[in-house]
Nucleic acid binder design. Structure first.
Length: 579
DNA sequence: GCCGTTTTCGGCCCGACTGTTTTCAGTCG
Protein backbone atom coordinates (compact mmCIF):
# COMPACT_ATOMS: atom_id res chain seq x y z
CA UNK A 1 0.00 0.00 0.00
CA UNK A 2 1.49 3.34 -0.93
CA UNK A 3 1.00 6.71 0.69
CA UNK A 4 -1.59 7.87 -1.83
CA UNK A 5 -3.74 4.81 -1.25
CA UNK A 6 -3.69 5.18 2.53
CA UNK A 7 -4.48 8.88 2.19
CA UNK A 8 -7.43 8.02 0.00
CA UNK A 9 -8.91 5.76 2.66
CA UNK A 10 -8.68 8.54 5.24
CA UNK A 11 -10.27 11.00 2.83
CA UNK A 12 -13.10 8.54 2.19
CA UNK A 13 -13.66 8.27 5.93
CA UNK A 14 -13.77 12.07 6.16
CA UNK A 15 -16.33 12.29 3.39
CA UNK A 16 -18.70 9.85 5.06
CA UNK A 17 -18.28 11.52 8.45
CA UNK A 18 -19.29 14.72 6.72
CA UNK A 19 -22.46 13.16 5.37
CA UNK A 20 -23.20 11.78 8.80
CA UNK A 21 -23.02 15.28 10.23
CA UNK A 22 -20.07 14.57 12.49
CA UNK A 23 -18.09 17.36 14.13
CA UNK A 24 -16.28 19.32 11.48
CA UNK A 25 -13.12 19.17 13.55
CA UNK A 26 -13.19 15.41 13.56
CA UNK A 27 -13.62 15.50 9.78
CA UNK A 28 -10.76 17.92 9.44
CA UNK A 29 -8.56 15.68 11.54
CA UNK A 30 -8.96 12.86 9.01
CA UNK A 31 -8.34 15.22 6.11
CA UNK A 32 -5.22 16.64 7.71
CA UNK A 33 -3.93 13.17 8.47
CA UNK A 34 -4.56 12.16 4.85
CA UNK A 35 -2.60 15.15 3.63
CA UNK A 36 0.27 14.48 5.98
CA UNK A 37 0.63 10.98 4.60
CA UNK A 38 0.20 12.02 1.00
CA UNK A 39 2.97 14.59 1.10
CA UNK A 40 5.45 13.18 3.57
CA UNK A 41 8.66 11.96 1.97
CA UNK A 42 8.85 8.69 3.89
CA UNK A 43 7.14 5.52 2.84
CA UNK A 44 4.12 4.98 5.11
CA UNK A 45 4.67 1.20 5.27
CA UNK A 46 8.20 1.71 6.47
CA UNK A 47 7.21 4.27 9.10
CA UNK A 48 4.57 1.85 10.34
CA UNK A 49 6.95 -1.09 10.59
CA UNK A 50 9.37 1.04 12.54
CA UNK A 51 6.52 1.90 14.90
CA UNK A 52 6.63 5.64 14.29
CA UNK A 53 3.12 6.36 13.05
CA UNK A 54 2.42 8.81 15.89
CA UNK A 55 5.40 10.92 14.86
CA UNK A 56 3.49 11.97 11.75
CA UNK A 57 1.74 15.31 12.21
CA UNK A 58 -2.04 15.07 12.76
CA UNK A 59 -1.86 11.34 13.40
CA UNK A 60 -2.81 10.45 16.96
CA UNK A 61 -3.81 7.23 18.63
CA UNK A 62 -7.15 6.81 16.90
CA UNK A 63 -6.10 7.51 13.32
CA UNK A 64 -2.90 5.49 13.79
CA UNK A 65 -5.11 2.47 14.52
CA UNK A 66 -7.01 2.97 11.29
CA UNK A 67 -3.81 3.37 9.30
CA UNK A 68 -2.40 0.20 10.85
CA UNK A 69 -5.60 -1.62 9.92
CA UNK A 70 -5.28 -0.48 6.32
CA UNK A 71 -1.63 -1.49 6.09
CA UNK A 72 -2.18 -4.87 7.74
CA UNK A 73 -5.34 -5.92 5.95
CA UNK A 74 -5.41 -3.82 2.80
CA UNK A 75 -8.69 -2.32 3.95
CA UNK A 76 -10.07 -0.39 6.90
CA UNK A 77 -12.88 -2.08 8.77
CA UNK A 78 -13.87 1.32 10.15
CA UNK A 79 -14.43 2.63 6.62
CA UNK A 80 -16.47 -0.43 5.75
CA UNK A 81 -18.68 0.07 8.79
CA UNK A 82 -19.16 3.68 7.82
CA UNK A 83 -20.01 2.80 4.25
CA UNK A 84 -22.76 0.47 5.45
CA UNK A 85 -24.22 3.14 7.67
CA UNK A 86 -25.12 5.52 4.86
CA UNK A 87 -27.28 4.94 1.81
CA UNK A 88 -25.12 4.20 -1.22
CA UNK A 89 -25.08 6.88 -3.84
CA UNK A 90 -25.71 9.79 -1.54
CA UNK A 91 -22.07 10.88 -1.78
CA UNK A 92 -22.45 11.30 -5.53
CA UNK A 93 -24.76 14.26 -4.88
CA UNK A 94 -21.85 16.15 -3.35
CA UNK A 95 -20.33 16.56 -6.78
CA UNK A 96 -23.07 19.00 -7.72
CA UNK A 97 -21.89 22.53 -6.92
CA UNK A 98 -23.98 24.13 -4.21
CA UNK A 99 -24.90 20.81 -2.67
CA UNK A 100 -23.03 20.00 0.49
CA UNK A 101 -23.49 17.23 3.02
CA UNK A 102 -26.43 18.84 4.81
CA UNK A 103 -28.44 19.31 1.65
CA UNK A 104 -27.53 15.88 0.33
CA UNK A 105 -28.84 14.20 3.46
CA UNK A 106 -32.10 16.15 3.38
CA UNK A 107 -32.61 15.36 -0.29
CA UNK A 108 -32.27 11.70 0.53
CA UNK A 109 -34.30 11.65 3.71
CA UNK A 110 -37.16 13.84 2.55
CA UNK A 111 -37.32 13.01 -1.15
CA UNK A 112 -35.49 9.68 -1.44
CA UNK A 113 -32.97 11.12 -3.90
CA UNK A 114 -29.73 9.14 -4.10
CA UNK A 115 -28.50 9.70 -7.65
CA UNK A 116 -27.73 12.75 -9.74
CA UNK A 117 -30.31 11.61 -12.28
CA UNK A 118 -33.02 11.42 -9.60
CA UNK A 119 -31.97 14.87 -8.47
CA UNK A 120 -32.35 16.26 -11.98
CA UNK A 121 -35.83 14.82 -12.38
CA UNK A 122 -36.92 16.11 -8.97
CA UNK A 123 -35.70 19.59 -9.84
CA UNK A 124 -37.49 19.54 -13.18
CA UNK A 125 -40.69 18.39 -11.51
CA UNK A 126 -40.38 21.21 -8.97
CA UNK A 127 -40.30 18.85 -6.04
CA UNK A 128 -37.17 20.40 -4.52
CA UNK A 129 -39.07 23.53 -3.53
CA UNK A 130 -41.21 21.51 -1.18
CA UNK A 131 -38.26 21.40 1.15
CA UNK A 132 -38.06 24.12 3.76
CA UNK A 133 -35.45 26.68 2.82
CA UNK A 134 -35.41 25.65 -0.82
CA UNK A 135 -37.18 27.58 -3.56
CA UNK A 136 -37.41 28.17 -7.25
CA UNK A 137 -33.89 29.54 -7.40
CA UNK A 138 -32.47 26.45 -5.70
CA UNK A 139 -34.00 24.22 -8.37
CA UNK A 140 -32.55 26.36 -11.13
CA UNK A 141 -29.12 26.24 -9.53
CA UNK A 142 -29.25 22.49 -9.13
CA UNK A 143 -30.09 22.04 -12.82
CA UNK A 144 -27.35 24.48 -13.77
CA UNK A 145 -24.93 22.64 -11.50
CA UNK A 146 -25.73 19.25 -13.03
CA UNK A 147 -25.29 20.63 -16.52
CA UNK A 148 -21.95 22.17 -15.57
CA UNK A 149 -20.86 18.91 -13.99
CA UNK A 150 -21.63 16.93 -17.12
CA UNK A 151 -19.80 19.34 -19.37
CA UNK A 152 -16.89 20.14 -17.13
CA UNK A 153 -13.45 19.50 -18.48
CA UNK A 154 -10.96 17.45 -16.50
CA UNK A 155 -7.92 19.08 -14.94
CA UNK A 156 -5.49 20.35 -17.53
CA UNK A 157 -1.91 19.02 -17.58
CA UNK A 158 0.52 21.75 -16.56
CA UNK A 159 2.26 21.83 -19.94
CA UNK A 160 -0.96 22.57 -21.79
CA UNK A 161 -1.87 25.21 -19.23
CA UNK A 162 1.55 26.83 -19.64
CA UNK A 163 1.07 27.38 -23.35
CA UNK A 164 -2.23 29.14 -22.72
CA UNK A 165 -0.90 31.13 -19.77
CA UNK A 166 2.12 32.43 -21.68
CA UNK A 167 -0.05 33.51 -24.57
CA UNK A 168 -2.53 35.31 -22.31
CA UNK A 169 0.17 37.07 -20.31
CA UNK A 170 1.96 38.23 -23.43
CA UNK A 171 -1.18 39.85 -24.74
CA UNK A 172 -2.24 41.40 -21.44
CA UNK A 173 1.18 43.02 -21.10
CA UNK A 174 0.37 45.09 -24.16
CA UNK A 175 -1.95 47.14 -21.98
CA UNK A 176 0.28 50.07 -20.95
CA UNK A 177 -1.44 50.48 -17.59
CA UNK A 178 -1.17 46.92 -16.40
CA UNK A 179 1.46 46.07 -13.79
CA UNK A 180 2.60 43.12 -11.70
CA UNK A 181 0.83 40.42 -13.68
CA UNK A 182 1.26 37.11 -11.88
CA UNK A 183 -0.30 33.67 -12.14
CA UNK A 184 -1.31 32.23 -8.78
CA UNK A 185 -2.98 28.98 -7.69
CA UNK A 186 -1.77 25.49 -8.50
CA UNK A 187 0.02 26.77 -11.60
CA UNK A 188 2.33 28.85 -9.46
CA UNK A 189 2.90 25.93 -7.12
CA UNK A 190 3.93 23.83 -10.16
CA UNK A 191 1.36 21.13 -9.53
CA UNK A 192 1.20 18.48 -12.27
CA UNK A 193 -2.29 19.52 -13.34
CA UNK A 194 -4.37 22.64 -12.91
CA UNK A 195 -8.14 22.90 -12.43
CA UNK A 196 -8.36 26.52 -13.48
CA UNK A 197 -6.01 29.39 -14.18
CA UNK A 198 -5.96 32.35 -11.84
CA UNK A 199 -4.20 35.53 -12.94
CA UNK A 200 -3.77 38.62 -10.80
CA UNK A 201 -2.34 42.05 -11.36
CA UNK A 202 -2.59 45.72 -10.59
CA UNK A 203 -3.48 48.62 -12.84
CA UNK A 204 -4.48 52.25 -12.64
CA UNK A 205 -7.17 51.50 -15.19
CA UNK A 206 -8.58 48.08 -14.35
CA UNK A 207 -11.43 48.31 -16.87
CA UNK A 208 -9.13 48.45 -19.87
CA UNK A 209 -7.28 45.28 -18.83
CA UNK A 210 -10.53 43.48 -18.15
CA UNK A 211 -11.85 44.52 -21.56
CA UNK A 212 -8.65 43.33 -23.22
CA UNK A 213 -8.78 40.03 -21.34
CA UNK A 214 -12.37 39.25 -22.25
CA UNK A 215 -11.72 39.99 -25.91
CA UNK A 216 -8.67 37.74 -26.30
CA UNK A 217 -8.83 35.23 -29.18
CA UNK A 218 -8.41 32.35 -26.70
CA UNK A 219 -11.70 33.22 -25.02
CA UNK A 220 -14.60 30.97 -25.89
CA UNK A 221 -17.19 32.34 -23.49
CA UNK A 222 -17.38 35.12 -20.91
CA UNK A 223 -18.82 33.71 -17.71
CA UNK A 224 -18.68 36.87 -15.62
CA UNK A 225 -17.35 40.35 -16.13
CA UNK A 226 -17.10 43.22 -13.67
CA UNK A 227 -14.91 46.26 -13.36
CA UNK A 228 -12.00 44.54 -11.62
CA UNK A 229 -12.62 40.84 -12.21
CA UNK A 230 -13.61 38.59 -15.07
CA UNK A 231 -14.05 34.86 -15.54
CA UNK A 232 -13.87 33.30 -18.98
CA UNK A 233 -13.90 29.85 -20.46
CA UNK A 234 -10.93 29.42 -22.77
CA UNK A 235 -11.30 27.53 -26.04
CA UNK A 236 -9.56 24.50 -24.56
CA UNK A 237 -12.25 24.37 -21.87
CA UNK A 238 -10.27 25.67 -18.93
CA UNK A 239 -11.76 28.36 -16.73
CA UNK A 240 -9.53 31.40 -16.47
CA UNK A 241 -9.89 34.27 -14.00
CA UNK A 242 -8.32 37.68 -14.07
CA UNK A 243 -8.56 39.94 -11.07
CA UNK A 244 -7.11 43.42 -10.85
CA UNK A 245 -6.42 44.29 -7.24
CA UNK A 246 -5.24 47.34 -5.26
CA UNK A 247 -1.47 47.84 -5.29
CA UNK A 248 -1.27 48.08 -1.52
CA UNK A 249 -2.65 44.59 -0.86
CA UNK A 250 -1.26 42.68 -3.84
CA UNK A 251 1.06 40.65 -1.61
CA UNK A 252 -1.71 39.55 0.72
CA UNK A 253 -3.93 38.61 -2.20
CA UNK A 254 -1.16 36.72 -3.99
CA UNK A 255 -0.43 34.78 -0.84
CA UNK A 256 -4.08 33.93 -0.35
CA UNK A 257 -4.78 32.87 -3.92
CA UNK A 258 -1.57 30.90 -4.33
CA UNK A 259 -2.63 28.48 -1.59
CA UNK A 260 -2.53 25.65 -1.12
CA UNK A 261 -5.66 25.66 0.96
CA UNK A 262 -4.00 23.51 3.59
CA UNK A 263 -0.96 25.78 3.69
CA UNK A 264 -3.21 28.79 4.27
CA UNK A 265 -5.15 27.06 7.01
CA UNK A 266 -1.95 26.12 8.79
CA UNK A 267 -0.49 29.57 8.28
CA UNK A 268 -3.56 31.19 9.79
CA UNK A 269 -3.54 28.84 12.76
CA UNK A 270 0.11 29.60 13.31
CA UNK A 271 -0.62 33.34 13.13
CA UNK A 272 -3.43 33.14 15.67
CA UNK A 273 -1.02 31.69 18.20
CA UNK A 274 0.94 34.91 17.80
CA UNK A 275 -2.12 37.13 18.12
CA UNK A 276 -2.28 37.87 14.41
CA UNK A 277 -5.05 37.09 11.97
CA UNK A 278 -4.18 36.58 8.30
CA UNK A 279 -6.63 37.15 5.48
CA UNK A 280 -6.42 38.11 1.81
CA UNK A 281 -6.67 41.76 2.86
CA UNK A 282 -3.80 41.89 5.26
CA UNK A 283 -2.65 40.93 8.71
CA UNK A 284 -4.77 42.05 11.65
CA UNK A 285 -3.64 42.35 15.23
CA UNK A 286 -6.41 40.51 17.05
CA UNK A 287 -6.01 42.67 20.18
CA UNK A 288 -5.90 46.15 18.64
CA UNK A 289 -7.87 45.34 15.49
CA UNK A 290 -5.26 47.11 13.37
CA UNK A 291 -4.80 45.72 9.93
CA UNK A 292 -1.68 45.98 7.78
CA UNK A 293 -2.20 45.27 4.06
CA UNK A 294 0.87 43.67 2.46
CA UNK A 295 1.96 45.00 -0.91
CA UNK A 296 4.53 42.29 -1.45
CA UNK A 297 4.21 38.65 -0.53
CA UNK A 298 7.49 38.50 1.40
CA UNK A 299 5.93 40.92 3.89
CA UNK A 300 3.23 38.43 4.84
CA UNK A 301 5.77 35.89 5.96
CA UNK A 302 8.18 38.33 7.54
CA UNK A 303 5.49 39.97 9.70
CA UNK A 304 4.62 36.52 10.99
CA UNK A 305 8.27 35.93 11.87
CA UNK A 306 8.75 33.34 9.15
CA UNK A 307 11.29 32.78 6.44
CA UNK A 308 9.80 33.36 3.01
CA UNK A 309 8.16 30.12 1.90
CA UNK A 310 8.42 29.52 -1.87
CA UNK A 311 5.12 28.62 -3.60
CA UNK A 312 6.26 25.16 -4.67
CA UNK A 313 6.51 23.90 -1.09
CA UNK A 314 3.29 25.45 0.20
CA UNK A 315 1.70 22.07 0.69
CA UNK A 316 1.02 22.01 4.42
CA UNK A 317 3.72 19.38 4.85
CA UNK A 318 6.03 20.88 7.44
CA UNK A 319 7.09 24.05 5.66
CA UNK A 320 5.69 26.42 8.28
CA UNK A 321 7.47 24.70 11.14
CA UNK A 322 10.68 24.72 9.12
CA UNK A 323 10.28 28.41 8.27
CA UNK A 324 9.65 29.27 11.93
CA UNK A 325 12.84 27.42 12.90
CA UNK A 326 14.78 29.13 10.07
CA UNK A 327 15.44 25.71 8.58
CA UNK A 328 14.00 26.03 5.11
CA UNK A 329 16.31 24.74 2.40
CA UNK A 330 17.67 27.17 -0.14
CA UNK A 331 15.79 25.76 -3.11
CA UNK A 332 17.51 25.21 -6.44
CA UNK A 333 16.74 27.83 -9.08
CA UNK A 334 16.82 27.77 -12.85
CA UNK A 335 20.07 29.79 -13.09
CA UNK A 336 21.79 27.13 -10.96
CA UNK A 337 21.40 24.67 -13.84
CA UNK A 338 24.57 24.53 -15.94
CA UNK A 339 23.53 21.96 -18.51
CA UNK A 340 20.93 19.46 -19.64
CA UNK A 341 21.74 15.74 -19.47
CA UNK A 342 18.82 14.23 -21.34
CA UNK A 343 17.99 15.45 -24.85
CA UNK A 344 17.17 14.04 -28.27
CA UNK A 345 18.00 15.09 -31.82
CA UNK A 346 17.03 14.21 -35.37
CA UNK A 347 19.36 11.23 -35.06
CA UNK A 348 16.56 9.40 -33.24
CA UNK A 349 13.09 10.80 -32.53
CA UNK A 350 13.95 14.47 -32.04
CA UNK A 351 13.18 17.28 -34.44
CA UNK A 352 16.33 19.39 -34.50
CA UNK A 353 19.91 18.81 -35.57
CA UNK A 354 22.73 18.52 -33.07
CA UNK A 355 23.94 21.97 -33.97
CA UNK A 356 20.50 23.50 -33.48
CA UNK A 357 20.19 21.81 -30.10
CA UNK A 358 23.68 22.95 -29.10
CA UNK A 359 23.00 26.57 -30.01
CA UNK A 360 19.63 26.52 -28.25
CA UNK A 361 21.34 25.19 -25.14
CA UNK A 362 24.00 27.87 -25.33
CA UNK A 363 21.28 30.52 -25.70
CA UNK A 364 19.85 29.30 -22.42
CA UNK A 365 23.12 29.86 -20.66
CA UNK A 366 24.16 26.22 -20.48
CA UNK A 367 27.79 25.13 -20.67
CA UNK A 368 27.12 21.54 -21.63
CA UNK A 369 24.44 19.43 -23.28
CA UNK A 370 24.28 15.65 -23.28
CA UNK A 371 23.05 14.18 -26.55
CA UNK A 372 21.15 11.08 -25.49
CA UNK A 373 19.35 9.63 -28.47
CA UNK A 374 17.74 6.22 -28.17
CA UNK A 375 19.57 2.87 -28.32
CA UNK A 376 19.06 0.42 -31.24
CA UNK A 377 16.38 -1.72 -29.56
CA UNK A 378 13.92 1.14 -29.60
CA UNK A 379 13.08 0.85 -33.27
CA UNK A 380 9.96 2.94 -32.97
CA UNK A 381 12.06 5.92 -31.93
CA UNK A 382 14.61 5.31 -34.67
CA UNK A 383 17.19 4.17 -32.14
CA UNK A 384 20.81 4.40 -33.24
CA UNK A 385 22.65 1.32 -34.45
CA UNK A 386 26.26 1.07 -33.32
CA UNK A 387 27.36 2.25 -36.73
CA UNK A 388 25.11 5.33 -36.62
CA UNK A 389 26.14 6.02 -33.04
CA UNK A 390 29.79 6.17 -34.11
CA UNK A 391 28.87 8.51 -36.93
CA UNK A 392 27.03 10.70 -34.46
CA UNK A 393 30.17 10.84 -32.32
CA UNK A 394 32.12 12.21 -35.27
CA UNK A 395 29.56 14.95 -35.70
CA UNK A 396 29.73 15.74 -32.00
CA UNK A 397 33.54 15.96 -32.18
CA UNK A 398 33.28 18.29 -35.14
CA UNK A 399 30.75 20.54 -33.36
CA UNK A 400 32.78 20.61 -30.17
CA UNK A 401 35.77 21.81 -32.19
CA UNK A 402 33.78 24.47 -33.94
CA UNK A 403 31.30 25.81 -31.37
CA UNK A 404 32.43 28.04 -28.56
CA UNK A 405 30.82 28.26 -25.14
CA UNK A 406 29.01 24.91 -25.21
CA UNK A 407 30.21 21.32 -25.03
CA UNK A 408 28.22 18.37 -26.29
CA UNK A 409 28.52 15.14 -24.33
CA UNK A 410 28.27 11.78 -26.08
CA UNK A 411 25.39 9.99 -24.48
CA UNK A 412 22.64 7.49 -25.01
CA UNK A 413 19.24 6.78 -23.54
CA UNK A 414 19.79 3.05 -23.31
CA UNK A 415 16.81 0.76 -23.18
CA UNK A 416 16.61 -1.49 -20.13
CA UNK A 417 15.50 -4.82 -21.55
CA UNK A 418 12.99 -7.15 -19.93
CA UNK A 419 15.78 -9.12 -18.25
CA UNK A 420 17.45 -5.99 -16.87
CA UNK A 421 20.32 -6.02 -19.35
CA UNK A 422 21.20 -2.87 -21.26
CA UNK A 423 20.61 -2.42 -24.96
CA UNK A 424 24.24 -1.46 -25.71
CA UNK A 425 27.33 -3.60 -25.12
CA UNK A 426 29.68 -2.60 -22.32
CA UNK A 427 32.53 -1.65 -24.66
CA UNK A 428 30.29 0.94 -26.32
CA UNK A 429 28.91 2.20 -23.02
CA UNK A 430 32.47 2.63 -21.88
CA UNK A 431 33.17 5.03 -24.71
CA UNK A 432 30.20 7.25 -23.90
CA UNK A 433 30.51 10.33 -21.70
CA UNK A 434 27.17 9.53 -20.11
CA UNK A 435 24.70 6.64 -20.17
CA UNK A 436 21.04 6.94 -19.22
CA UNK A 437 18.94 3.87 -18.47
CA UNK A 438 15.24 3.81 -19.27
CA UNK A 439 12.36 1.42 -19.45
CA UNK A 440 10.23 1.66 -22.59
CA UNK A 441 8.62 -1.75 -22.78
CA UNK A 442 7.11 -4.44 -20.58
CA UNK A 443 5.70 -1.84 -18.24
CA UNK A 444 3.01 -4.09 -16.85
CA UNK A 445 5.38 -6.49 -15.13
CA UNK A 446 4.71 -7.24 -11.48
CA UNK A 447 6.33 -5.03 -8.86
CA UNK A 448 8.96 -7.53 -7.83
CA UNK A 449 10.04 -8.32 -11.38
CA UNK A 450 10.10 -4.66 -12.34
CA UNK A 451 12.20 -3.79 -9.33
CA UNK A 452 14.61 -6.68 -10.02
CA UNK A 453 14.93 -5.60 -13.60
CA UNK A 454 15.83 -2.02 -12.72
CA UNK A 455 18.22 -3.12 -9.97
CA UNK A 456 20.06 -5.35 -12.40
CA UNK A 457 20.46 -2.48 -14.84
CA UNK A 458 21.73 -0.26 -12.06
CA UNK A 459 24.52 -2.72 -11.37
CA UNK A 460 26.00 -2.11 -14.80
CA UNK A 461 29.23 -0.22 -14.08
CA UNK A 462 28.75 2.19 -16.98
CA UNK A 463 25.23 3.36 -16.26
CA UNK A 464 25.02 6.87 -14.84
CA UNK A 465 21.41 7.94 -14.59
CA UNK A 466 18.10 6.14 -14.19
CA UNK A 467 15.72 8.36 -16.14
CA UNK A 468 11.98 8.86 -15.62
CA UNK A 469 12.14 6.23 -12.88
CA UNK A 470 8.40 5.51 -12.53
CA UNK A 471 7.38 5.84 -16.18
CA UNK A 472 4.16 7.68 -15.40
CA UNK A 473 2.46 9.81 -18.04
CA UNK A 474 0.22 12.25 -16.25
CA UNK A 475 -3.41 11.59 -17.02
CA UNK A 476 -2.54 8.72 -19.37
CA UNK A 477 -0.41 6.07 -17.72
CA UNK A 478 0.13 5.08 -14.11
CA UNK A 479 3.61 4.65 -12.68
CA UNK A 480 5.08 1.16 -13.09
CA UNK A 481 4.54 -1.12 -10.20
CA UNK A 482 8.01 -0.64 -8.77
CA UNK A 483 9.45 -0.49 -5.27
CA UNK A 484 10.90 3.01 -5.39
CA UNK A 485 12.18 2.88 -1.84
CA UNK A 486 14.40 -0.05 -2.79
CA UNK A 487 15.44 1.61 -6.04
CA UNK A 488 16.42 4.82 -4.24
CA UNK A 489 18.47 2.94 -1.67
CA UNK A 490 20.20 1.00 -4.43
CA UNK A 491 20.93 4.24 -6.29
CA UNK A 492 22.67 5.59 -3.19
CA UNK A 493 24.71 2.38 -2.75
CA UNK A 494 25.64 2.05 -6.41
CA UNK A 495 26.26 5.70 -7.20
CA UNK A 496 23.45 5.94 -9.72
CA UNK A 497 21.88 9.33 -10.28
CA UNK A 498 18.08 9.54 -10.30
CA UNK A 499 16.37 11.83 -12.76
CA UNK A 500 13.64 14.38 -12.46
CA UNK A 501 12.33 14.45 -16.02
CA UNK A 502 10.87 17.88 -16.68
CA UNK A 503 8.62 16.96 -19.59
CA UNK A 504 5.35 18.31 -18.22
CA UNK A 505 3.41 15.10 -18.72
CA UNK A 506 6.13 13.17 -16.87
CA UNK A 507 7.55 15.23 -13.98
CA UNK A 508 9.13 11.97 -12.87
CA UNK A 509 10.36 11.60 -10.13
CA UNK A 510 7.65 13.69 -8.53
CA UNK A 511 8.25 16.11 -5.68
CA UNK A 512 7.53 13.68 -2.87
CA UNK A 513 9.83 10.97 -4.18
CA UNK A 514 12.54 13.51 -4.95
CA UNK A 515 12.34 14.66 -1.35
CA UNK A 516 12.68 11.08 -0.19
CA UNK A 517 15.62 10.49 -2.51
CA UNK A 518 17.37 13.51 -1.06
CA UNK A 519 16.65 12.33 2.45
CA UNK A 520 18.31 8.98 1.70
CA UNK A 521 21.30 10.72 0.14
CA UNK A 522 20.70 10.12 -3.57
CA UNK A 523 22.00 12.46 -6.26
CA UNK A 524 19.50 13.94 -8.69
CA UNK A 525 19.73 15.16 -12.27
CA UNK A 526 17.09 17.63 -13.46
CA UNK A 527 16.60 17.31 -17.22
CA UNK A 528 14.25 18.42 -19.96
CA UNK A 529 14.11 15.23 -22.08
CA UNK A 530 13.73 17.70 -24.94
CA UNK A 531 12.82 16.33 -28.37
CA UNK A 532 13.27 19.73 -30.01
CA UNK A 533 15.09 22.96 -29.25
CA UNK A 534 12.11 24.64 -27.60
CA UNK A 535 11.68 21.55 -25.42
CA UNK A 536 14.77 22.61 -23.49
CA UNK A 537 12.44 25.04 -21.72
CA UNK A 538 10.78 22.09 -20.02
CA UNK A 539 13.66 22.46 -17.58
CA UNK A 540 11.35 24.95 -15.87
CA UNK A 541 8.97 22.15 -14.86
CA UNK A 542 11.86 19.96 -13.78
CA UNK A 543 13.26 22.68 -11.55
CA UNK A 544 9.75 23.35 -10.19
CA UNK A 545 9.38 19.67 -9.34
CA UNK A 546 12.82 19.64 -7.70
CA UNK A 547 11.75 22.62 -5.61
CA UNK A 548 8.58 20.77 -4.62
CA UNK A 549 10.95 18.09 -3.38
CA UNK A 550 12.85 20.63 -1.24
CA UNK A 551 15.99 20.10 -3.33
CA UNK A 552 18.96 22.43 -3.17
CA UNK A 553 21.69 23.17 -5.66
CA UNK A 554 24.03 20.74 -3.96
CA UNK A 555 21.61 17.83 -4.41
CA UNK A 556 21.63 18.21 -8.18
CA UNK A 557 24.50 17.04 -10.39
CA UNK A 558 23.90 19.28 -13.38
CA UNK A 559 24.51 22.42 -11.34
CA UNK A 560 28.28 21.85 -11.37
CA UNK A 561 30.91 22.80 -13.94
CA UNK A 562 31.69 20.53 -16.86
CA UNK A 563 34.98 19.47 -15.30
CA UNK A 564 33.34 18.54 -12.02
CA UNK A 565 30.57 16.71 -13.82
CA UNK A 566 33.06 14.67 -15.83
CA UNK A 567 34.94 13.76 -12.68
CA UNK A 568 31.72 12.72 -11.03
CA UNK A 569 30.50 10.57 -13.94
CA UNK A 570 33.91 9.01 -14.43
CA UNK A 571 34.47 8.38 -10.77
CA UNK A 572 31.80 5.73 -10.69
CA UNK A 573 33.38 3.75 -13.53
CA UNK A 574 36.79 3.87 -11.97
CA UNK A 575 35.45 2.69 -8.66
CA UNK A 576 33.59 -0.14 -10.34
CA UNK A 577 36.51 -1.15 -12.50
CA UNK A 578 38.79 -1.22 -9.48
CA UNK A 579 36.28 -3.37 -7.62
C1' DG B 1 -9.77 13.68 16.48
C1' DC B 2 -5.49 16.36 17.20
C1' DC B 3 -2.72 19.57 19.64
C1' DG B 4 0.14 22.56 23.28
C1' DT B 5 7.61 27.60 25.01
C1' DT B 6 0.71 30.92 27.70
C1' DT B 7 -3.14 25.17 27.58
C1' DT B 8 -3.53 17.78 28.80
C1' DC B 9 -8.93 20.89 28.11
C1' DG B 10 -10.78 23.91 25.05
C1' DG B 11 -9.68 25.40 21.34
C1' DC B 12 -9.63 24.34 16.03
C1' DC B 13 -8.80 30.00 9.26
C1' DC B 14 -11.10 33.73 6.86
C1' DG B 15 -14.23 36.01 4.14
C1' DA B 16 -17.75 36.06 0.46
C1' DC B 17 -21.86 34.63 -1.55
C1' DT B 18 -26.49 32.73 -1.89
C1' DG B 19 -31.20 32.01 -1.00
C1' DT B 20 -34.47 32.42 1.84
C1' DT B 21 -34.53 34.26 5.63
C1' DT B 22 -36.43 38.47 9.80
C1' DT B 23 -30.98 36.94 11.63
C1' DC B 24 -28.58 32.88 9.26
C1' DA B 25 -27.08 28.24 7.71
C1' DG B 26 -24.84 26.11 4.13
C1' DT B 27 -21.43 26.18 0.70
C1' DC B 28 -17.24 27.51 -1.49
C1' DG B 29 -12.32 28.59 -2.36
Amino acid sequence: MNNEQVAEVLNDIAEILEIKGESKYRIRAYQQAARSIEFMPEDIEEVYHEGHLDDIPYIGKSIAEKVADVLEHGRASYLEELEESIPPGIDSLLQVPGIGPKTAVRLYQELGIDTIEALRIAAEEHRIRQLKGMGEKSEENILKGIKWLQGKSPRLPLGAAAILVERILEQLRRDPFVRNLVVVGSYRRVETTVGDIDIMGTSDRPETVIDLFTSLPDVDRIMAKGTTKATVLAKNGVQTDLRIVPHESLGSLMQHFTGSKEHNVQLREFSLSKGLSVSEYGITNTRTGWRIPCAVEEQVYSILGLQYIPPEIRQGSGEIEAAAAVKLPELVTQPDIRGDLHTHSKWSDGRNSLEEMALAARDRGYRYLAVTDHSPGLGIAHGLTLERLRRQWREIDELNNRLKGITLLKGSEVDIRADGSLDLPDDILQELDIALGAIHSGMNESGSRMTERVLRAMHNPYLNILVHPTGRLIGRRSPYDIDLETVIRAAVDLGIILEIDGTPDRMDLDGRHARRAKELGAKIAVNSDAHQASGLDNMHFGVGTARRGWLEKKDIVNTVSLEELRRFLFGRRQRNQAA
